[in-house]
Design a protein around this nucleic acid. Structure first.
Lengths: 303, 303
DNA sequence: TCCTTGCATTTTATATGCAAAGAGCAAGGC
DNA sequence: GCCTTGCTCTTTGCATATAAAATGCAAGGA
């Protein structure tokens, strides 16, 4: 009734630990392992039993020793190590962002449960989450209205993003030079330069760098609502990026240059330059999103 | 397994319709009633059957006629006309805002279900909602951390509120004079003057007026995230107001005056005055909230 | 033709059941 | 005295069950 993704993930985690051990060596204590994998000791004990059954470990009184090196086939496939809930979330967002349904479409929990092969419980737990994303709207005692990933959606999300980012930038420059965010920012600046120099082979690393830059700024605002909103943006962009790979290198290049102007202005504490660079960057990002949305609205459910 | 709050609410709604009818008169069609009460015809049919059983209506072929005037005792009590879900939401917010638990407290779904007398299903559906409010934070596979209604919470919520309100005010003054929001605003201005003149007896009407003013402004921003955030604020204030009745009249008076300055600036399209009046008003509101929060932190769970 | 009601089917709201995972205590070894 | 394991009890994740409510269609009447 309850999946065992935690067990499988921990099992794989323990296999990694085993690999660092010489045959015959003793396993760390249940406590140590459970802490390093952030799960309960109960789970670790179950995993240990599994590893013994697989002939990887042998018990001798209170201690467990490695009897054979684990092989790649011992591990559970990655797909089984994620909870149903997380899987549904991912699949739903992908489905939405790939444009399989249009604005105005009605979503019923029962149908979604069938489509994703789970129970309505899970679906009902997730729909409010997507409402928070601004993607759907509730009709009481009835279905959910899909509002669509439309140009309006992009503008609304970017209007808020701009307000939040500009506000956060002000908190950022209020911090002293030696503060951790400033140190991180200087590292990020260096990484930007390095990536720019090596754009042809490294452009795929950009999204991660992008996220770290903006999060570093946002964090200084020390505001849960701003952070929470950036979580939405971040998730949306993550899935959006997966199918909008066109011009990826060119876009990364432009964004890196704009970021550098922004970062320099931040480090100079030049408010006017910050506003200018930030607005310019968000403007570009907004039109990238708009472009990909409009592309999708034209050629529908193909993907 | 499913409550029948919809039935009871609709039953009461039909009783109201009956009261407008002369004895012997014919009821409207099932369709008409279901539309006016925003429920399905199925529910109306069930209600009709109930009204017949109660001797209020009699069927004659396809038509239903009023046989006796409904009495107050015919109606279901209001408490039974709200869904379990809505009840839990209200009770949970009240409980939180009354300060029965402090920041750092761990909330378990099982315990909350026991406390509120429902199943964990309902609780699990609501907890993410309160996370959206910024009140709680999830620990994976475990309990929820209550972050507390603290001064920090008030500041974070007001920082965002200020950004949104100022932004919305700019959209408001971009609209032409005859637009519906402007018309509504002029009505709201008149209501403010009327309430100020009659503050001693009418101050309890202020919260509703307050909400209408801010919503009128927010709506013009035409941004789902801004609206959504105002929903949070609105709900929070609604429940907060219920136990923070001290100085209510004085506070309403101050707010009305500040509102009027804000409204006048808006209607004059005077950007500087708008910013000044808006900031002043939100500053007052922020300190009112802070005051009530600090009061509560001092004298704990008593209420 | 457009509403009307009756009826059959689907979906929602909520509770319950159950395996997996977490929490905590007690007893023993270093 | 601290950390270990064993064990028990609680809580979580998810599926399923069921009454209430919604939806949709067919047939009849104005």
């Amino acid at each position: 009734m309850k999946g065992n993704a935690v067990y499988k993930r921990s099992y794989n985690g323990c296999l990694s630990i085993c690999e660092t051990l010489a045959p015959g060596a003793e396993m760390p204590s249940e406590n140590e392992i459970s802490q390093s994998l952030s799960v309960s000791r109960t789970t670790i004990r179950a995993v240990m039993a599994g590893l013994e059954a697989a002939g990887i470990l042998t018990r001798q009184g209170a201690s467990r020793r490695l009897t054979r090196r684990p092989e790649p086939t011992d591990a559970f496939p990655d797909t089984q190590t994620v909870s149903t809930s997380a899987t549904v979330e991912r699949r739903f967002l992908e489905w939405i962002l790939q444009g399989h349904i249009g604005p105005g479409h009605l979503l019923t929990a029962a149908e979604l449960a069938r489509q994703f092969g789970t129970s309505t419980t899970i679906i009902r737990e997730h729909l409010p989450h997507f409402q928070h994303f601004g993607l759907i709207e509730r009709r009481p005692n009835s279905a959910w209205l899909f509002k669509g990933v439309t140009p309006a959606f992009a503008h609304e999300i970017y209007d808020v993003r701009e307000m939040f980012e500009l506000r956060a930038a002000r908190s950022f420059i209020a911090l002293p030079d030696p503060s951790p965010p400033w140190q991180r920012m200087r590292t990020i600046e260096r990484e930007h330069r390095a990536l720019l120099a090596d754009i042809d082979t490294g452009y795929a690393l950009f999204p991660d760098l992008d996220e770290r830059l903006h999060r570093t700024v946002h964090e200084t605002a020390d505001n849960r609502f701003i952070k929470d909103f950036y979580d939405i943006i971040s998730m949306l962009f993550h899935y959006n990026a997966q199918w909008d790979a066109e011009d990826e290198k060119q876009r990364a290049f432009t964004a890196l240059s704009e970021h550098l102007a922004y970062i320099e202005a931040l480090l100079r504490r030049d408010l006017k330059a910050i506003d200018r660079a930030c607005r310019q960057h968000l403007k570009t990002a907004r039109s990238n999103l708009l472009r990909s949305i409009e592309l999708r609205l034209k050629k529908p459910p193909s993907l």
